[in-house]
Structure formats: C-alpha cells, structure tokens
Design a protein around this nucleic acid. Structure first.
Lengths: 383, 383
DNA sequence: CAAGGTTATTTCGATTCTCGAACCAACCTT
DNA sequence: AAGGTTGGTTCGAGAATCGAAATAACCTTG
C-alpha cells in the first residue's frame, strides 16, 4: 500500500491532459482544448504557451475557418527532442527512439547478457542511446525489464532469474547519465499500456495477453497499469483448464493453461504426434499457416483453452477490450477460437461491448508502452 | 468510457482527505494532518477551520504533549447530522442511520415489494428516513439496489427483474425530498466498498465475495469500486470449475461455480442424498455447525470450489485481500477450505501478503458501504 | 523557577492557478 | 463595407496554497 506520493503534481496534470488530447488528435486548437477540458480559454492559452516555450508543443499553421477566425493548429513538437526506450530481453535488447507524441521513429537491436549484471547491460544500451540522441535532446527514458519490478524503487524483485539485478536501482543509474526522468516496468505491463493508450487513451479497462512461447498478460484499469498488491497482477498462465489432461506444470500444479496453450506446449504436442521436425512455436505456426491439419487443430484448441481462461477473467473484470500479442496472435484461427470461446462462455452483459483483437502496435508493443510510461513521468511546466 | 465528469472538484478533494484521515484515526491534530498530507500547516489550518464551521469536524480538547505545545485533537462532528442508507432487497429494506464518520448508529427493517415500483418503495423507505432524521439534519443518503446499476444516471439497468424500475432515476427522486446528495450502487459493490474502506481506507485492492444462496462479488481497485465496462464486473458465479460434474447452470453453460458452491446447490446436494428435511442454505449450515458429517463435507467441498475459482482471480488481480460475506462466511470449515485451496493453487508472489478473511462489517456490510459511498459524494466546503 | 528548547497553531504577505469579461484578430456572409 | 461568428489574448479579481515569522503552550534542566 503506497502512501500519498503523487509523483505528478495536480498542476502538471493539466499539461499532461493537454498533451494527451493533442497527441491523440482529439483537440487541435486552443479553443477545442478549452471545450474538451471544460476550462476557461484564457487558462488553456496560458498553459499552451508554456508548453510551446518548453518545446513540447508547436503551432502548425492555421486550420480552416468555421465561420470566423481560423484556429491556430497545435501539434506535438516533434523536432525538439526524443524519448528513448529499451526492451531488455533474455539475449538481446530492443531499443527505440520516439517522437514526443510517442511515435516510434527508429529502432535498434543489440545482443546483451542480462547475467553480466545491470551496469554492463545498461552501459551497452546507453551506447546506443547516445547514438540515437546525437543531434537532439532526450526528454525522458522508458525501460522494460523482464519479470516483476518494484516501480517505486525501480528494481527487479525476483531474486532468482537475473543475477546481480535485484535491488539495483535502474532509474537512478540511468538518470545520473542523462538527467531526465527514467521510468521502468515489466514487459507485460508496458505492452498492455502501449496497446491500451493507442486505442483508448487514459480511459477504459483492458487486458493485453501475450501468447507466445509463454503466456502472460498486463491489466489496464481506467487507463493506468494495474500492478496488484505485490506487482504480480496479470498472471493467467496458471489458470486451471478443464479437460486439459492434468499435465504437470512448472508451478507444481497440474492442468494449468500453460500446459495446453503456450507455444512450448504446442511444440510438445506436435512432437508427441511424431512431428519431430517441429522445434519452435514458429514452426507450429508456420505449419498452421500452410493449413497443415494437425497443426491447425492444435492451434485452434490452444485458442479455445485461452478463451476458456479469459472467459473467467472477462466475467470478473469486465474490460472494454482484450488485446492479443505475441507470435500466436498472428494466427487468425487462434484468435477466432479465443473469440468464439469467450463469447460463448461469458455473460452477455460482459461481452456486449467487448472487443477481442490482435494488438495494433504489434511487435513493438513494449517499446510503445515504454514510451507512454516515460511520457507519463515526463516533467512538465506547471504554468 | 466516461468523459471528464469529475463529480468532485479537486478542491473538495482536500476536505475529503482530511475527513478521511480523521475518521480513520490516522491523524488527530492539525499538525499530523499537515504531515500526512504533505501540505503547509497554514493550508491545513484554514481548511480544518472551514470544516469545523460546516459542522463536519469538531475539536475534542487537547492531546498529550510530546515535548511542546499540546495538539488540539480533532474528530468528526458526530452531533451535527447523520447519513441515511438503505439496502433494498427482495422482500424487505434494511435502513441505517450513520454518524458522519460512517459508523452505523441505528438500523430498521421494513417489508417492501420492489414489484410495486420505485415510487411506492422509496416512499415507504422515506417514511423511516424521516423518523430517523427527526431531530437532526441529513448530510447525505446512500442507496443499495439489487442488480446492475447505471451509476451516472442512478438507474437500474437490467430490464427483467424489477418491473417499473429500469430508467427511473432514483437519486433525483430522493434528492427532491431531502436536498442532499444521493448516491446509489448495487449491493455487491457497496458491500465490497464498506469492507474495504474499513480495512484499508482509500488504498489497496480487494475482492469481497458474497457466498450465500447465490454467489457474487465486488471489486475494489485502489480504494475505489471497479465497475467494469458495462457495470458487470465482479461476476464469478459462472467461472467454470474442474470436476464439477457438468451440472447445467441457469446461464446455459455447465460446470459453473454456482452449480457446486452456491447455497442453493448445497441444498440440492443434501436433498439428493436423501435429506429432504433440508430446505434452505441456513439448514445446511446449521447441520454443518452441529458437525453433521455429510453437511460438513459438502460445505468444505463448496469452499474448495470457491477457492479454486478465486485462485484464478487472485493470480490475475493480485489483491491485498479477499473478504467473504454472506451466510456461508460464518462457517469456519468453509473459510478454511477456501483459504487452503487458494494458497495451494496460487503463485507465491500473489499470496505472499494476501489476506483471506470473513468480512468484519458482517451483516451490515452493505449499509456500511452505502454510507461510505454517500460520504464520498458529500458536498464539502472548498475553503 | 526562570531560561531555553520543542511542538502546535495562527497570522500574514507572496505566489500560483484559474476564471470571467472585455478586447483584439481574423474570417465569413450578404 | 457592415455585421455576425469564431479563435485567441489581455487583464484584473478570486481562490488556494505556501513559507516565514509570530504566537501559544508545553517540557526540560540547570
């Protein structure tokens, strides 16, 4: 239970809402902003001016008249600086440079070994950061870490998987180098944030499921990441699935979703059926894409199982949308099976407005989310 | 997706936080408030004074010195007025009078027929309200309705169950009579709010499950009710339970939690075993309390099934606590079974701080929640 | 028991944010 | 060209907060 440590003052909030409205194209002039925010035109004007002075917003010329003076169009100042992000994975880091509106402008990929410890890993990333920021200024940095993260401290919490990392304050280390706000979170949460904000902005509830070799999810409540009491929220991989054949799971129980719907389990199922040429999730998906009957059936069944697990979650949480990412989300039969099962098993009131879709932000969902999260933590002018 | 319709201005928020801190005993003097809120002493002093002037806060004399001047103790002004609440149920209405700190001072119960329509029902409730408010003023009113509610309009949304109610604006009708803010929500949400606020205040996440003849739940995210996209959140009764015997459920599917763990299903199970003397959930619980082996076993099994359903929810949502209300929550074997299954089936990180307990607020959880909700909607002085 | 340190609260300008009303700017229609 | 319409700014007023200093009431200690 966190105390009252609002990172963002109430005053910064207005600046943030203005930027959000502009970035999402929901308001493009001062008067539209005033209408959308319900504030006096003068208030908005002053704030917009300070955002322009800070290099965050810029004027884009005049719009078309609606019977009177033409509005002066506003846009995010794309030229004044960038946001840097990195998605730290097992063997490599994916690095992104974004415009101030969050748009991904450039990506790089470098090999990293997390086992070398945080300093070595982050130093390697910073080399690329420096390149990307060569002739521009950095406004904020967002970092995605694999596994549970303590947001307030910016540390990895799971002692096991990443030697040297637990307790190491990632934001402090990186901030010392760039002097800008550094925001960290885990990959599942950031993918969810990226997709959600692209679709709904800072309203609404959604779940973003990553279905690949493993299965994980991130939860967005009212436009913000729900991390739960211990930062463990979003774990759906150990949901018990009926009729799953009681296959033992790494967690010690049997019948978990993971054992029947993860990419790893699909590979296992194919090999059990004699297809020893299959070695990765991608192999299974490739076969299914070629309409190989057995692979297609197995992928569909996995979708049904995931749909079964999601139906419980949808009934409980009643989101506006469920987004699917990860390699398996590229398979139409998979998505169709998920959809079918959820709509069949859920209460009509819960599905009446529910969207179930492949994520739009695709492969770089995590980088998009990291950029959003970094922008959420941007220091903004207050008047 | 609701637009920017903050019911409570940012200015009222400070007053609300001050009252909350005082009511929960987390601050009892101006200086403690200033420290807890991170605000200047002068700011707090001014606001406290206006709350005293409004009759919401009062001075309770001096505290003990800690080496200097003694603090002037603050308390909620219990004498200046009350909050009225009503829990509208199928055959009767439970009515409560609360102090301004939310404490339940007096309860009444009257028979009502919801089928008579909203006017007749509410008029009957108001007669009791008038009695309870005879020599005092009413500050706010909270109303619990059975079934889904549109919070913004204050209407029942399900066309089926309550003839004459759908579309009827309950708050408007009652407000015309008393001229104070009237807040409505459904029973599950209010029970959850009442229990959560009593335990955690406006922080933290929890689920409150009502296990009685039927099973329902309310969700609290960060101290506030999570209603979901269509107001349907909290539905766990149709979670599919493994090894449940595929009993058909009212929802059209089979194997729902409801078919194996609801009070109604316990009665059915007992009768199937030849105990035709059992007619209600209470009968089953009475037998279990008397250590009747079959009843005890059935209750335990129901607890295990509920625990199974909750384990999925706990992994996903990662709450600080799961509270149990309803008649079955009085059974220790039931709670023990729930606990046992959840701790067994959940990821350790999700259960590491998890509390699973019978609700403290007991029978009047809904009235407590209605009072909290009403107080959340109280109109407060802004300076 | 008086002096000096400590804690609690209030007083009092200064600052910041917002508003509303008037005003200016730029456009359209006729 | 006149009058209406929309977009935006200027400016004084009001509200909320702050910081610093003043005041109040207490404790400790020589």
């Amino acid at each position: 239970m966190t105390p009252d440590t609002d990172r963002s003052s109430a005053d910064e909030d207005l600046s943030r809402r203005i930027i959000d409205l502009i970035a999402r194209g929901q308001a493009s002039s001062r008067s539209e902003l005033a209408a959308a925010l319900g504030l006096a035109p003068s208030t908005v004007s002053l704030r917009v001016q300070s955002l322009i002075d800070a290099g965050l917003v810029t004027e884009r010329g005049d719009g078309t008249s609606r019977g009177g003076r033409r509005p002066r169009l506003l846009g995010i100042d794309e030229g004044s600086g960038i946001v840097l992000t990195v998605d730290l994975g097992g063997g490599h880091a994916r690095i992104g440079a974004h415009s101030l509106s969050g748009e991904l402008r450039e990506t790089r990929s470098i090999p990293v070994a997390l086992a070398d410890g945080p300093e070595a890993t982050l130093d390697a990333v910073c080399v690329v950061f420096d390149e990307l920021a060569r002739d521009t200024t950095v406004h904020a940095i967002g970092i995605s870490l694999p596994g549970p993260v303590d947001i307030d401290r910016g540390t990895v919490t799971q002692p096991s998987r990443m030697p040297g990392w637990p307790g190491f304050r990632v934001p402090d280390y990186v901030r010392r180098r760039y002097g800008v706000p550094v925001a960290v979170d885990n990959d599942a949460n950031l993918a969810a944030l990226g997709e959600h904000r692209a679709q709904f902005g800072t309203n609404g509830h959604s779940i973003t499921v990553k279905a690949g070799t493993a299965i994980g999810s991130g939860i967005i409540v009212d436009g913000h990441i729900h991390r739960g009491a211990t930062g463990a929220a979003g774990d759906i991989t150990h949901t018990r699935i009926d009729g799953s054949g009681d296959i033992p799971c790494s967690c010690g129980n049997t019948g978990c979703l993971e054992t029947v719907a993860s990419g790893a389990s699909l590979v296992r199922q194919m090999r059990e059926r004699g297809r020893t040429d299959v070695e990765t999730t991608a192999d299974v998906l490739a076969l299914a894409r070629d309409a190989e009957p057995e692979a297609t059936m197995i992928v569909r069944t996995a979708g049904t199982h995931l749909g079964q697990a999601l139906s419980g979650v949808v009934n409980f949480f009643n989101p506006h949308a469920v987004f699917l990412t990860g390699s398996m989300s590229a398979s139409e039969p998979f998505i169709a099976a998920v959809r079918s099962r959820v709509y069949e098993a859920c209460h009509p009131l819960a599905t009446q407005q529910l969207r179930i879709e492949a994520a739009q932000t695709r492969a770089d969902a995590i980088l998009h989310g990291a950029a959003r999260w970094a922008l959420d933590n941007l220091e903004l002018p207050t008047a």
